[in-house]
């Protein structure tokens, strides 16, 4: 295992730690808006983690999964915000 792989594994570990911290806020969050913002951060960190996984397995097709995942997270946040504003 060369040092390039070790650096990339450490980076993936930091992203996974960020996902776990956002999951803590998602479970504990006192208000609905806290949970929605934790979901937003989780989906953004998920995009970076999927790109890392596609680099580890060297398949470009996984990046399409990341694009669709980001699109669904964005639309979900917009719809929940409109629902909270009672304009949906």
């Amino acid at each position: 295992m060369d040092s390039l792989t070790i650096i990339l594994f450490v980076a993936a570990g930091f992203i996974l730690l960020a996902l776990l911290l956002a999951l803590y806020r998602f479970i504990k969050g006192p208000h609905t808006t806290d949970r929605v913002i934790a979901f937003d951060v989780m989906s953004i960190a998920g995009i970076a983690l999927i790109a890392m996984i596609s680099l580890f397995s060297s398949r470009i097709i996984y990046l399409d999964v990341a694009i669709v995942y980001g699109l669904l997270g964005f639309i979900g946040v917009i719809i929940i915000a409109k629902y909270l504003e009672r304009s949906l």
């Binding site: 911290l21 806020r25 913002i37 951060v41």
Partner: peptide, 9 residues
């Protein structure tokens, strides 16, 4: 990304 999630807490 990690520091952003830490700020979230």
């Amino acid at each position: 990304l990690f520091l952003g999630a830490l700020g979230l807490i």
